[in-house]
Design a protein around this nucleic acid. Structure first.
Lengths: 233, 233
DNA sequence: CGCTCGGTTGATGCACATCAAAGGCTGTGG
DNA sequence: CCACAGCCTTTGATGTGCATCAACCGAGCG
């Protein structure tokens, strides 16, 4: 991992767009990011690892990270794809002296604002409004997990269509139907708990039918209505 | 639903055992429960319903509730089994004017302490310590969802063994290996996203082998080591 | 007494995992 | 600069875990 310290000021403008910080003064945002600095992680590099002591949390600034948890059999399951604006690691800040429950790996070169745990315990708790907004973020993460659990009875076609939509929803630009991160079929399989081959079979079927296209690990939805219909059938 | 108002004092002793309230003065606990009252829900009755306005959250005092979410196909998926000490509905308190994302149904006669939303927004946010403990509770809920997601590649035997252990962990009495709630095979199936028949087949197999026994919807683990071994194989 | 609800068992079929083999593309080191 | 390893993708052949359908039993209950 490459540690490239920047002045926080440079990133303040990025931060002010994030929902958690809406309506706060610059001085308040600075307090909430006290001791923070930006790190750049190249493709495939770890941001933090499952089981290591949780010293920091923070925001995804650009790029993307996959959050994964090793299964007892050694295979990794991808729990979540985090994109710019997402907070990572807050859950674990509340508990004293605990370890990260997940690992975090960059999908393509990515930037992350690391904020030390002490800042959370000292400053974040002082802003009821920020706490509530943070809980809203957590709440939507939980809801996504709930939705995926509900899909567990559906067939693979529906599940796959569903995650594609979930990922697409996180895109900033609502007009572009390209998924906002480079993603392999293996990663989709690891997220769905299925095999690569099955994902490939379904997706090449869809490519032939003109439902979507893949260009250099970037998936573009061509027929959104169709995908949504498959997801809920 | 039967609304049976009790004096809060009667339940204060129950509350002081809950981890969220550890180390607080009685007056503080009273502030956190301001406007609260106890409701008794008979078997199969709703505590609240998916989609209805979220006016309250609260604590399970006795019995149990299943939290479920209707799937697009009309089938209900059970997301979580909540037992005494659990907080239900906090996630949704943070967002203004929102609806319950899940329904909650009593499994056997149960008691619940309803606390109005205003109390959360007004009083809870004032106690940084309580906020952190609440987040710890949420965090363990999220972790359970993560663990289940990791199990998605495992076979049904492992998954079933796993949920049995998860439920058993929530029991207060650590020496008794009986699950702390009455549960049908259908409910286990709805939680696992599988069919009743499959659950039955596996469990009667285990009964014959002396791994567990069922008496009147109460499941008792006889060979815990075996169950744990199955869960992680 | 008929009803519903929970549990059980067997027969059949399909969706998906698994195994195998092969081609393209990227980066790395001799 | 070429060879080789490793990753991503693809396609086909084969097997199986589990869903689905169907039928039946016992217990509780109005």
């Amino acid at each position: 991992m490459i540690d490239k310290k920047q002045t926080l000021k440079a990133t303040l403008s990025e931060l002010s767009n994030f929902p958690v910080f809406q309506g706060l003064k610059t001085s308040e945002v600075e307090a909430l990011c006290e001791g923070g600095h930006v790190v750049v992680t190249p493709h495939h590099h770890y941001l933090f690892q499952h089981g290591h002591d949780a010293h920091f949390f923070g925001f995804v600034l650009s790029g993307a990270y996959k959050l994964l948890k090793p299964s007892p059999q050694g295979e990794d399951t991808i729990i979540y794809f985090s994109t710019p604006g997402d907070i990572i690691g807050v859950l674990v800040m509340a508990q004293p002296g605990s370890q990260y429950p997940l690992s975090s790996i960059a999908m393509g070169p990515s930037r992350f604002l690391k904020i030390p745990r002490e800042t959370y315990l000292k400053n974040w708790v002082q802003f009821p409004d920020v706490i509530l907004k943070t809980q809203s973020l957590l709440s939507s993460r939980i809801r996504q997990l709930h939705n995926q659990k509900v899909m567990s009875k559906a067939n693979l076609h529906s599940k796959l269509a569903f995650v594609l939509i979930e990922i697409l929803k996180k895109a900033q630009d609502k007009d572009d139907l390209t998924l906002p991160l480079p993603i392999t079929r293996k990663e989709l399989a690891d997220n769905l708990g299925t095999s690569v081959e099955s994902v490939i079979r379904i997706m090449s079927e869809w490519s032939k039918e003109g439902v979507l296209e893949t260009k250099d690990q970037h998936i573009k939805i061509l027929d959104l209505k169709r995908v949504m219909q498959i997801a809920s059938s």
